[in-house]
Structure formats: C-alpha cells, structure tokens
Design a binder for these strands. Structure first.
Lengths: 203, 203
DNA sequence: ACCGAAAATGCAGTCGGCTCATTTTTGGGC
DNA sequence: GCCCAAAAATGAGCCGACTGCATTTTCGGT
C-alpha cells in the first residue's frame, strides 16, 4: 500500500535520470535526442514528458544530483575547517569545483546553466536555484566558524562576505565552462589570487 | 570601390537588428518567430541566417548594444567619481542596472544570458563576453581612481577587488532576471548592503 | 475475480529553428 | 550596354522537441 504505483513512479524517474546522464555525458546535450533517452530507459518518448517538462529539465536534474554531492563534501569541510581563513576558503571552493567537474563535461554544465536561466519557473530549475543558495550559505557558515576560531575579525559581516565569495566563485565557474579550452588549474589560480587579496583584508 | 555590396550588407544587418529588437521587446524571445523578424526587415527567413547564426545570436546582438550604453554611461562616472568609495561603487553599479533594464525586459536578458552560455563560440557571444570583461575593468579603474584620491587604502589589490565586485553584481543581476516577480529596488538594496560591508574593510 | 481510476503508450501531428539546392542579383571588365 | 562569375536571397523541406489523444495496461479496493 501507499504504493507500488508511487514506487514505480520514483523508479521510472530514476531510470530516466540515469539514462539521461549516460547519453548527455556520452553525446553532449544537443547530440542527445529524447527518443534515445526514452529507449534506454525502456519508455516511449511521450512518457518522458510525464516526468520532465523539457529536455533541459532532465539535464538540470543530472547536475543537481552532482551539486548535492558538492554540498555534502563541503559540509565536511565546514565541520572541520583548516586553521587559516585563506586555506579554508580555498579548500571549500576547490573541493566544490573538483566535484562538479569530475563527472560532468563543460558542455553539460553550459547547457544546464543555460536551461536553468531560460526556464527558471520549472520545479527543477527552482530546486537548482535552491542548491546554489545552499552553497552560498555554506560559505557563510564557514566564515562564521572561522570567526569563532579567531581566524577572521569579529566585526566582519559574514552574510555579505559569504555571498560575495560564493557569487564570485560561481560567476568565474560560469565563465570557465564557457571557454572550452581553459584549464581548471587556471581557474583555481585566479580564485586563489582573489582569496589571498581578500583575506589580507578580513583576517 | 570597396563597396556598395559591403554597405548593403551592413545596412541589412542593421535592419535585422532593429527588427529583432522590436519583436523581442514586444513579444518576448520565444514568442518571436524568425519569420516575423525577417518579414519586418523585408528579407526572407533563410537570409537571416546569412547574417546571424542562431536566433539567440540576434538577441545577444540586441543586448550587446544595450551593454555598450552601460559602458558609456559608466565611463562618465569613472571620470568623475563620487568622493567616497561606497557612493562611487553604488553609483556605478546602479547606473549600469538602470541602463540595462530600462529598455529590455527580464525575459530578454534571461534568454540572452542563456544563449551566450549555451553557444559561447559564436562571434557575438564572444563580443558579449568581451563587453562583460570591459565592465569588470571599469570597476577596477574606478577603484584605481578612488585609491589615488585616498578614498580607499593604497595597498588594496584593485584587480582582485574590481573583479570581486563586478562578478558579485553580475551574479546577482543574473539571479534577479530569473525571478520574474522581483523588484529592482530589492536587488539594489541587497547590493548596497554588501558594498557597505565591503567598504568598511577597504576604505 | 471484477471494476473504476490512473497512468503508460505510441503515434499522428504541430511548430519553429535551421539547412541547402536553386534562383536571382550584382558590379566589374570588355 | 552586355556578359558572367561571385555573392546573396530564397523558400521548400528536414529535423527534433513537444502535444493531444484514443487505446491499452496496471493498480488497488471490494
């Protein structure tokens, strides 16, 4: 009771997600047709739209899964942050980048970001926006922790600076995935330089 | 003689741009069909693609025009900045927001940002990225000016902080256009609060 | 076992972005 | 003026995302 039906629904949704992830990773977003995803998930193309409203929503679901992992990994760092502000901020941001890019291609991120921007009023786009907000909050909590350890000044507005740091990282990540040829190490180096400058003023 | 042909080409490109702006503003991005733009520009649908590679490129061209104006207006502020760091930063950012949103809808910006993200390898997307870079540089130059006036500390890394400020504003603008119901004044208030916190640490 | 509700199916069909083979226009050389 | 090669315009048609619907399948309560 309470559901074979419900369970099947969840299970099918999951199958679709997995199939989508496979194809998007293998053939890129535009190179994947809905029909292929449906076939892999052993459903018909029409049925896909009972579960996801647009092709883009499938991709957003895939990257959201990945973002959940980023959050989880970040949580460990917030719980036991490195001693200095600079090390802690660098670690949190870089762990996020590594997780985000370990599994999904730039193409995948690009189109996911584009879809979430173009159709922000779908459930999954909202969930994605929420995940981003939680990332920002994680940075704030890291700063709060550092403040308590005395690694940064007491009078610092951690809300404002948390947002500043995460928005900056997020924006640079965005720029990074737009340049196919760019190396991750470059992005990290740029961020580290900024964090160094910043920490000189907040530590 | 270098060109009736070339001139006609430029002129047609211009006509298309104008037609696109009209329709996108009136009917939104998805509500505008290429054929309508073509008709207004007195060309056939196929011909549009001799001038712009995708529908999205047309929109990017429209918002780029707008961004040029933002830059121009910002330049005046950089030349004669307000006396305090906080007033100067607020003024530059807010003047940009007002210009950007005075003429184009959130829908237009949303889809332009999405297109520039999804197809970053087109000429116009690159030009758009370049405009964004120039905005960031404008903030840096503002900080440099303020530094010379003694409104912010000499040892501040203006490159890092210029990027930080503009990336933050850019990211919040992005979030703002994604929420149809949100008021511009709210966005500005949020930014002002951040700038206040920031200026407490750099002035 | 049976029934009604809910969901899946798959296909015909729409729609619009984009392509490409073909036609039309153009402007420099004679 | 006229010709012709190159450039540009054209529009029929393709492709794939998405929709609507008539039909079938699947549950779950009685």
């Amino acid at each position: 009771m309470s559901g074979l039906r419900a369970r099947q629904k969840v299970e099918r949704r999951q199958r679709l997600l997995l199939a989508a992830a496979t194809h998007f990773r293998a053939s890129g977003y535009e190179g994947t047709r809905i029909e292929e995803i449906a076939a892999t998930a052993e459903l018909s193309a029409g049925t896909v739209y009972n579960y996801y409203r647009h092709k883009g929503e499938l991709l957003i679901a895939v990257v959201s899964m990945q973002l959940e992992e980023v959050l989880e990994e970040g949580e460990r760092l917030v719980a036991e942050p490195p001693a200095t502000a600079e090390a802690a901020i660098n670690a949190l941001v870089e762990v996020g980048l590594d997780r985000a890019l370990g599994y999904l291609s730039k193409d995948n991120w690009r189109h996911a970001l584009a879809s979430a921007t173009a159709q922000p009023e779908t459930d999954l786009a909202r969930r994605y926006a929420d995940l981003e907000a939680r990332l920002a909050d994680q940075v704030r909590r890291l700063l709060d922790g550092l403040q308590q350890q005395g690694a940064i000044r007491d009078d610092l507005d951690t809300i404002a600076f948390g947002a500043l740091i995460s928005n900056n990282a997020s924006r640079l990540f965005h720029a990074y995935v737009r340049e196919e040829g760019r190396a991750l190490e470059e992005l990290k180096a740029g961020l580290r330089a900024q964090h160094a400058a910043l920490c000189r003023r907040i530590a």
